[in-house]
Amino acid sequence: MALLEITDLSVHYGRVRAVHEVSLTVAEGEIVTLIGANGAGKTTTMRALSGLQPVSSGRIHFDGEDITHLRADLRVIRGISQAPEGRGIFPGMSVRDNLDMGAYARRDRHLTRAADLERVFTLFPRLKERSRQAGGTLSGGEQQMLTIGRALMARPRLLLLDEPSMGLAPMLIGQIFEILQEINEQGTTILLVEQNAHRALSVADRAYILETGSIVATGTGSALLDDPSVRAAYLGVA
């Protein structure tokens, strides 16, 4: 059974339809990516998954439970953790406090915090150097690392990542994707939303392509990488 199952999900902003009857599944242990151009509805889908955006129709099941209308904070307790796009940090808190916020919902946080911090600092040594600095003073790339590290502090079963490569230097992007694979190998299921299709398809087990709110193609990462129409539309290769 799939860990996450989205069935015919539609989301509207007022009268504007942002996501239209999207269905997708993520199995335990997979990396699944949702790629698409700007405005295709990727972030909206993510917000609906984590409960920040109300759903117009369709269902979301997590581990067999219907969570379509569950409050956002309760989804975190179920094991869904999102690293939001862009500046999703707490600017006035130190890096360390930001990371602690990641474990906010865990009852056993006092037992696991030290080990989890160590893991995050091993993945992102940069955060360790900056741990006393206020989150708002970090560079864009460091803030990106902070949102990912913070999401890991929740020890999620499903990690939702919204555009982890956005605004980063190419070398850093490579690093982040390596880290994602590492996290996945350590047992975390990942749903990854990306504009950087090449990178995303290279690490993903399976992928969905979103165009103006609907899914237009799906397949394994490697199959889509070889698909001529995908290459033309998303990889800039004729």
Binding site: V76, G88, P91, Y104, A105
Partner: peptide, 24 residues
């Protein structure tokens, strides 16, 4: 305190606070 940190989190970034499991 934990609850106090929840207050600070909501004040600095309400959406991110919800993603941390803070009951707004």
């Amino acid at each position: 305190t934990r609850l106090g940190r929840g207050v600070r989190a909501v004040s600095q970034n309400p959406d991110a606070a919800a993603l941390m499991g803070v009951n707004k």
